[in-house]
Computed example of a mutant assay.
Amino acid sequence: MDENRPESIVGGKSFTAVAINCAAKAGEWIKSKSGNFSQLDTKYSQHDLVTEVDKGCERLIRNLIATHFPHHAFLGEEGVEPGPEASAKALEQASGAEYLWIVDPIDGTTNYVHGFPFYSVSIALAHRGQVIVGVIYDPVRDELFLAERGKGAYVHGRLMQVSKETSLSQSLVATGFPADHLQALPANMAGIQAMAPKVRNLRVAGSAALQLAYVAAGRLSGFWEIGLSAWDIAAGSLLVEESGGRITDTQGEPYHLGVRNVAASNGKIHEELIGALPSR
Protein backbone atom coordinates (compact mmCIF):
# COMPACT_ATOMS: atom_id res chain seq x y z
CA MET A 1 0.00 0.00 0.00
CA ASP A 2 1.24 3.52 -0.85
CA GLU A 3 2.09 5.12 2.49
CA ASN A 4 1.14 8.54 1.09
CA ARG A 5 -2.37 7.41 0.27
CA PRO A 6 -4.76 7.90 3.22
CA GLU A 7 -7.00 5.09 4.26
CA SER A 8 -10.70 5.93 4.60
CA ILE A 9 -10.87 3.74 7.69
CA VAL A 10 -8.59 3.95 10.72
CA GLY A 11 -9.05 1.62 13.66
CA GLY A 12 -12.40 0.44 12.32
CA LYS A 13 -13.83 3.96 12.30
CA SER A 14 -14.71 5.38 8.88
CA PHE A 15 -13.78 9.03 8.44
CA THR A 16 -16.88 9.55 6.33
CA ALA A 17 -19.22 7.82 8.75
CA VAL A 18 -17.94 9.99 11.60
CA ALA A 19 -18.32 13.15 9.52
CA ILE A 20 -21.90 12.21 8.61
CA ASN A 21 -22.74 11.37 12.21
CA CYS A 22 -21.30 14.68 13.43
CA ALA A 23 -23.22 16.65 10.81
CA ALA A 24 -26.49 14.88 11.62
CA LYS A 25 -26.17 15.38 15.37
CA ALA A 26 -25.11 19.00 14.92
CA GLY A 27 -28.09 19.62 12.63
CA GLU A 28 -30.44 18.10 15.17
CA TRP A 29 -28.97 20.36 17.88
CA ILE A 30 -29.31 23.45 15.66
CA LYS A 31 -32.94 22.71 14.83
CA SER A 32 -33.79 22.11 18.49
CA LYS A 33 -32.46 25.57 19.35
CA SER A 34 -34.04 27.41 16.42
CA GLY A 35 -35.63 30.64 17.62
CA ASN A 36 -34.62 29.78 21.19
CA PHE A 37 -31.08 31.12 21.58
CA SER A 38 -30.45 33.59 24.38
CA GLN A 39 -27.11 35.19 23.52
CA LEU A 40 -26.26 37.05 20.31
CA ASP A 41 -22.85 38.65 19.85
CA THR A 42 -20.92 40.25 17.02
CA LYS A 43 -17.39 39.19 16.15
CA TYR A 44 -15.36 40.93 13.44
CA SER A 45 -18.12 43.35 12.37
CA GLN A 46 -21.85 43.96 12.70
CA HIS A 47 -22.30 41.48 9.85
CA ASP A 48 -20.43 38.70 11.67
CA LEU A 49 -22.74 37.12 14.26
CA VAL A 50 -22.31 34.30 16.75
CA THR A 51 -24.70 32.64 19.19
CA GLU A 52 -24.29 30.09 21.95
CA VAL A 53 -25.72 27.60 19.45
CA ASP A 54 -22.68 28.05 17.17
CA LYS A 55 -20.34 27.52 20.11
CA GLY A 56 -22.26 24.56 21.52
CA CYS A 57 -22.50 22.96 18.09
CA GLU A 58 -18.74 23.25 17.58
CA ARG A 59 -18.06 21.67 20.98
CA LEU A 60 -20.40 18.81 20.10
CA ILE A 61 -18.60 18.15 16.80
CA ARG A 62 -15.14 18.50 18.34
CA ASN A 63 -15.99 16.06 21.14
CA LEU A 64 -17.48 13.48 18.77
CA ILE A 65 -14.43 13.59 16.51
CA ALA A 66 -12.07 13.37 19.48
CA THR A 67 -13.90 10.27 20.69
CA HIS A 68 -13.04 8.44 17.46
CA PHE A 69 -9.81 10.15 16.41
CA PRO A 70 -8.19 11.66 19.52
CA HIS A 71 -4.89 12.34 17.73
CA HIS A 72 -6.41 14.31 14.85
CA ALA A 73 -6.12 18.10 14.76
CA PHE A 74 -9.22 20.31 14.75
CA LEU A 75 -9.81 23.76 13.25
CA GLY A 76 -13.21 25.28 13.96
CA GLU A 77 -14.48 28.78 13.32
CA GLU A 78 -15.61 29.42 16.88
CA GLY A 79 -12.25 28.43 18.33
CA VAL A 80 -10.43 31.15 16.38
CA GLU A 81 -10.29 34.88 17.11
CA PRO A 82 -12.29 36.98 14.61
CA GLY A 83 -10.70 38.54 11.56
CA PRO A 84 -8.72 37.45 8.50
CA GLU A 85 -5.31 37.64 10.17
CA ALA A 86 -6.40 35.34 13.01
CA SER A 87 -7.96 32.88 10.53
CA ALA A 88 -4.76 32.71 8.49
CA LYS A 89 -2.63 32.28 11.61
CA ALA A 90 -4.85 29.48 12.97
CA LEU A 91 -4.66 27.61 9.67
CA GLU A 92 -0.89 28.05 9.55
CA GLN A 93 -0.53 26.65 13.06
CA ALA A 94 -2.64 23.60 12.14
CA SER A 95 -1.14 23.04 8.71
CA GLY A 96 1.50 20.58 9.91
CA ALA A 97 -1.10 18.07 11.13
CA GLU A 98 -1.36 14.81 9.22
CA TYR A 99 -5.14 14.78 9.70
CA LEU A 100 -7.01 18.05 10.18
CA TRP A 101 -10.76 18.41 10.66
CA ILE A 102 -12.04 21.79 9.43
CA VAL A 103 -15.47 22.76 10.75
CA ASP A 104 -18.00 25.56 10.47
CA PRO A 105 -20.75 24.60 12.93
CA ILE A 106 -23.30 27.00 11.42
CA ASP A 107 -22.38 28.52 8.08
CA GLY A 108 -25.00 31.22 7.73
CA THR A 109 -25.49 32.32 11.33
CA THR A 110 -27.16 35.59 10.30
CA ASN A 111 -29.76 33.60 8.37
CA TYR A 112 -30.22 31.31 11.38
CA VAL A 113 -30.69 34.27 13.74
CA HIS A 114 -33.35 35.81 11.50
CA GLY A 115 -35.16 32.55 10.77
CA PHE A 116 -34.16 32.65 7.10
CA PRO A 117 -33.96 28.96 6.20
CA PHE A 118 -30.60 28.80 4.44
CA TYR A 119 -27.70 27.68 6.63
CA SER A 120 -25.57 24.58 6.98
CA VAL A 121 -23.09 22.50 8.94
CA SER A 122 -19.78 22.16 7.11
CA ILE A 123 -17.26 19.44 8.01
CA ALA A 124 -14.10 18.58 6.07
CA LEU A 125 -11.16 16.30 6.74
CA ALA A 126 -7.79 17.12 5.19
CA HIS A 127 -4.92 14.65 4.97
CA ARG A 128 -1.54 16.38 4.65
CA GLY A 129 -3.26 19.51 3.40
CA GLN A 130 -5.56 17.85 0.86
CA VAL A 131 -9.29 17.56 1.55
CA ILE A 132 -10.32 13.90 1.44
CA VAL A 133 -13.82 14.06 2.97
CA GLY A 134 -16.40 16.82 2.71
CA VAL A 135 -19.86 16.91 4.26
CA ILE A 136 -22.31 19.81 4.14
CA TYR A 137 -25.65 19.32 5.87
CA ASP A 138 -28.72 21.51 5.46
CA PRO A 139 -30.88 20.73 8.51
CA VAL A 140 -33.87 22.72 7.22
CA ARG A 141 -34.27 20.57 4.10
CA ASP A 142 -32.60 17.49 5.60
CA GLU A 143 -30.17 17.43 2.68
CA LEU A 144 -26.74 15.93 3.20
CA PHE A 145 -24.11 16.61 0.55
CA LEU A 146 -21.19 14.19 0.73
CA ALA A 147 -17.92 13.71 -1.12
CA GLU A 148 -14.95 11.37 -0.71
CA ARG A 149 -11.87 12.02 -2.80
CA GLY A 150 -11.90 9.79 -5.85
CA LYS A 151 -15.36 8.39 -5.06
CA GLY A 152 -17.73 11.05 -6.35
CA ALA A 153 -20.18 13.36 -4.59
CA TYR A 154 -23.72 12.56 -3.51
CA VAL A 155 -26.93 14.10 -2.19
CA HIS A 156 -29.83 11.92 -1.02
CA GLY A 157 -27.59 9.01 -1.99
CA ARG A 158 -27.62 10.08 -5.64
CA LEU A 159 -24.50 10.96 -7.62
CA MET A 160 -24.23 14.70 -8.21
CA GLN A 161 -23.08 16.40 -11.39
CA VAL A 162 -22.46 20.06 -12.07
CA SER A 163 -24.68 22.03 -14.44
CA LYS A 164 -24.24 22.12 -18.21
CA GLU A 165 -24.27 25.87 -18.94
CA THR A 166 -21.49 26.91 -21.29
CA SER A 167 -21.63 30.71 -20.93
CA LEU A 168 -22.17 33.29 -18.20
CA SER A 169 -25.22 34.61 -20.05
CA GLN A 170 -26.94 31.26 -19.41
CA SER A 171 -25.75 30.99 -15.82
CA LEU A 172 -27.19 31.45 -12.35
CA VAL A 173 -24.26 32.57 -10.19
CA ALA A 174 -24.03 33.22 -6.45
CA THR A 175 -21.83 35.28 -4.18
CA GLY A 176 -21.93 36.77 -0.68
CA PHE A 177 -21.53 39.90 1.41
CA PRO A 178 -18.28 39.43 3.36
CA ALA A 179 -18.09 40.25 7.06
CA ASP A 180 -14.92 42.26 6.46
CA HIS A 181 -16.54 45.54 5.39
CA LEU A 182 -13.25 47.41 5.05
CA GLN A 183 -11.60 45.40 2.25
CA ALA A 184 -13.44 42.21 1.27
CA LEU A 185 -16.93 43.73 1.08
CA PRO A 186 -16.01 46.62 -1.26
CA ALA A 187 -14.05 44.19 -3.46
CA ASN A 188 -16.98 41.80 -3.65
CA MET A 189 -19.40 44.63 -4.39
CA ALA A 190 -17.19 45.61 -7.33
CA GLY A 191 -17.42 42.00 -8.49
CA ILE A 192 -21.21 42.07 -8.23
CA GLN A 193 -21.38 45.25 -10.29
CA ALA A 194 -19.15 43.71 -12.96
CA MET A 195 -20.84 40.31 -12.96
CA ALA A 196 -24.53 41.27 -12.85
CA PRO A 197 -24.85 42.41 -16.49
CA LYS A 198 -23.11 39.28 -17.75
CA VAL A 199 -25.11 36.50 -16.06
CA ARG A 200 -28.67 35.25 -16.24
CA ASN A 201 -29.02 36.27 -12.60
CA LEU A 202 -27.20 36.53 -9.30
CA ARG A 203 -28.08 35.10 -5.89
CA VAL A 204 -26.75 36.08 -2.46
CA ALA A 205 -28.17 33.51 -0.04
CA GLY A 206 -25.85 33.84 2.95
CA SER A 207 -24.09 30.47 3.30
CA ALA A 208 -20.92 30.04 1.24
CA ALA A 209 -20.71 26.34 2.10
CA LEU A 210 -24.26 25.61 1.00
CA GLN A 211 -23.84 27.63 -2.18
CA LEU A 212 -20.75 25.57 -3.03
CA ALA A 213 -22.86 22.46 -2.47
CA TYR A 214 -25.42 23.91 -4.88
CA VAL A 215 -22.71 24.35 -7.52
CA ALA A 216 -21.83 20.68 -7.05
CA ALA A 217 -25.50 19.69 -7.34
CA GLY A 218 -25.99 21.69 -10.55
CA ARG A 219 -28.37 24.17 -8.93
CA LEU A 220 -25.91 27.02 -9.45
CA SER A 221 -23.55 27.43 -12.38
CA GLY A 222 -20.92 29.22 -10.32
CA PHE A 223 -19.99 30.96 -7.10
CA TRP A 224 -17.32 33.41 -6.00
CA GLU A 225 -16.59 35.37 -2.86
CA ILE A 226 -13.76 37.46 -1.45
CA GLY A 227 -12.40 37.03 2.07
CA LEU A 228 -13.61 33.60 3.11
CA SER A 229 -11.82 31.21 5.49
CA ALA A 230 -10.84 27.55 5.26
CA TRP A 231 -13.93 26.39 7.17
CA ASP A 232 -16.22 28.17 4.68
CA ILE A 233 -14.69 26.47 1.65
CA ALA A 234 -12.95 23.17 2.48
CA ALA A 235 -15.90 20.75 2.42
CA GLY A 236 -17.52 22.47 -0.56
CA SER A 237 -14.28 22.42 -2.53
CA LEU A 238 -14.28 18.62 -2.60
CA LEU A 239 -17.99 18.48 -3.44
CA VAL A 240 -17.38 20.69 -6.47
CA GLU A 241 -14.32 18.73 -7.62
CA GLU A 242 -15.98 15.34 -7.23
CA SER A 243 -19.07 16.54 -9.11
CA GLY A 244 -16.97 17.43 -12.14
CA GLY A 245 -16.62 21.14 -11.43
CA ARG A 246 -13.65 23.39 -10.91
CA ILE A 247 -12.54 25.43 -7.91
CA THR A 248 -9.66 27.94 -7.84
CA ASP A 249 -8.85 31.28 -6.34
CA THR A 250 -10.27 34.31 -8.15
CA GLN A 251 -7.07 34.57 -10.22
CA GLY A 252 -7.51 31.02 -11.49
CA GLU A 253 -4.73 29.51 -9.36
CA PRO A 254 -5.33 26.02 -7.88
CA TYR A 255 -7.36 25.77 -4.68
CA HIS A 256 -5.59 25.02 -1.41
CA LEU A 257 -6.67 25.42 2.21
CA GLY A 258 -5.20 28.92 2.44
CA VAL A 259 -7.33 30.33 -0.40
CA ARG A 260 -9.55 33.18 0.81
CA ASN A 261 -10.81 34.57 -2.51
CA VAL A 262 -12.55 31.66 -4.16
CA ALA A 263 -14.25 30.90 -7.46
CA ALA A 264 -16.13 27.67 -8.18
CA SER A 265 -18.07 26.62 -11.23
CA ASN A 266 -19.22 23.80 -13.44
CA GLY A 267 -15.86 24.15 -15.21
CA LYS A 268 -17.38 25.17 -18.52
CA ILE A 269 -17.85 28.80 -17.52
CA HIS A 270 -14.84 29.05 -15.23
CA GLU A 271 -12.52 31.13 -17.37
CA GLU A 272 -15.34 33.50 -18.24
CA LEU A 273 -16.37 33.72 -14.57
CA ILE A 274 -12.94 34.69 -13.25
CA GLY A 275 -12.34 36.90 -16.29
CA ALA A 276 -15.44 38.92 -15.45
CA LEU A 277 -14.20 39.74 -11.94
CA PRO A 278 -12.22 42.96 -11.42
CA SER A 279 -8.49 42.29 -11.15
CA ARG A 280 -7.13 42.56 -7.62
Rank of each mutant, 00 (worst) to 15 (best):
M1F: 09
M1V: 11
R5A: 10
G11M: 08
G12A: 05
C22D: 02
G27F: 03
E28K: 15
I30G: 14
S34Q: 15
Q39N: 14
D41Y: 07
T42A: 05
V50I: 13
D54I: 02
E58Y: 03
R59G: 00
H68F: 15
H68T: 11
H71N: 15
G76P: 14
E78S: 14
V80A: 07
A88N: 14
A90Y: 11
W101L: 04
N111F: 06
F118M: 01
S120E: 02
S120V: 01
A126V: 07
G129H: 11
I132M: 11
I136L: 01
D138S: 05
V140G: 01
E143K: 05
A147W: 08
G150T: 13
G152V: 14
H156G: 11
Q161A: 14
S163H: 04
K164A: 08
E165F: 04
L185C: 06
L185Y: 10
M189E: 10
G191R: 11
G191M: 09
I192N: 02
V199L: 09
R203Y: 03
V204K: 12
A205Q: 11
G206S: 14
L212Q: 10
A216Q: 07
A217S: 15
G218R: 12
G218N: 11
E225T: 05
E225G: 04
S229M: 12
S229A: 15
W231R: 06
W231D: 12
A234V: 08
G236V: 04
S237W: 08
L239R: 10
L239A: 07
T248E: 02
Q251P: 00
H256R: 15
A263C: 06
G267C: 09
G267T: 08
A276Y: 08
L277H: 09
L277V: 12
S279E: 12
